[in-house]
Write a protein that binds this DNA or RNA. Structure first.
Lengths: 199, 199
DNA sequence: TTAAAAAATGAACTATGATTCACTTCTTGG
DNA sequence: CCAAGAAGTGAATCATAGTTCATTTTTTAA
């Protein structure tokens, strides 16, 4: 054999893969996962349909990776907000605020990650995503309970309720309507009431 | 023309339509909307694929009607629970309990109505469904606020948060795990905290 | 310059269900 | 019993993507 992958080529391949992921995410940002078709991606990234399959085994792997990428970023952001110094009460409020602000900034994308009907493979990744979110909130709730800031309660239950409450109020049918910065404040108060804080 | 639709035939047609809807719902109950295919329905109801189209213009109409039927029943049940005599606090608890118990009894069905990825037409009907639920809760919350039982708050926001909280905690990734009757009690308490009751 | 190996291409192929439609069977009133 | 109009049938067709693969182009190192 005479051909060997040289560093510049390896780099180009890595870059192309990145470009594909970026294109794919931008398609999802603009039109949800429904807009992520192999055709559209190939067109957007300026290469052929067949080549997409050189970089991703199949559509599921592609979609799942786009989802995980984006999702990790979101989780990290909220996780950092939840980990600010201070009492659990402020941490929770910061987390909620962070989640809400990000959703406000990119509603279509937030919807795609949280609520859009998607292929089963992505849906499965989404379960993990929600579990991760729930786990983050659960930690803060547990801290709050230990510190006596929050009332006694089932932290896992409250955590998943909070995740659901945030998702529905921000992305649900009504979410679009009364979207304002007041709403974020209201939402923080609501979450604090839910964990039994602020008494 | 010599043929006219006679009463017995009209009745048979109406019954057949009912039978189709029943079959369709049972398919959804067992396997979600994914299991509702024209083929499966025709087989289950013991008639031909073509005949299904004599009773429903297309799949969307069929799926939407199945959804609305079921949904109206659910909304009515929760609506009645929310309208029991007593203070808003008890009403809210009764509504939550009703919702949760019904979801426990038929988890697959509840999931299909609330969270399953579905075709866009059904998804649109689902928006209305959620709006209806939210409206129900909103009323009780407003009553509670007026009566001084609940704290001041944006009733629409809290209502949609409650709907989201219920959906996520009962049907989300964690829902399956810790499903018990204690959980329903916990959930009631959580919802009451959320509306700022019980102080 | 060249031969081997990889990468790129995109038209053809697949898979899954919805939808149609030419044909058969049934129902009705005369 | 008959003719006309409905209702019933299910194989064929359509629609939408995802996936493949024979062919072409590019890259490499001798």
């Amino acid at each position: 054999m005479v051909y060997r992958e040289t560093p510049p080529i390896a780099k180009r391949k890595a870059e192309l893969r990145e470009r594909l992921l970026k294109s794919a995410e931008s398609l999802v940002r603009m039109g949800g996962f429904k807009a992520l078709t192999i055709q559209a991606l190939a067109t957007d990234a300026e290469l052929s349909v067949g080549s997409v399959y050189r970089y991703f085994k199949n559509k599921d792997e592609l979609a799942t990776q786009v989802f995980s990428h984006a999702t990790r970023r979101e989780i990290r952001a909220v996780g950092e907000a939840l980990a600010t110094d201070g009492r659990a009460t402020e941490q929770l409020a910061a987390g909620v605020r962070c989640f809400a602000e990000r959703a406000f900034m990119a509603p279509q994308f937030a919807w795609a990650l949280i609520a859009e009907p998607v292929e089963p493979a992505v849906d499965e990744a989404r379960l993990q995503y929600r579990r991760d979110y729930t786990a983050l909130f659960q930690q803060v709730i547990e801290r709050g309970i230990s510190a006596g800031e929050f009332c006694r309660q089932s932290a896992p239950l409250t955590a998943s309720a909070l995740v659901g409450a945030l998702a529905e109020s921000l992305l649900g049918p009504l979410g679009e309507a009364e979207r304002s910065s007041d709403m974020i404040d209201e939402l923080c108060l609501l979450c604090l009431r839910t964990v039994g804080a602020g008494n």
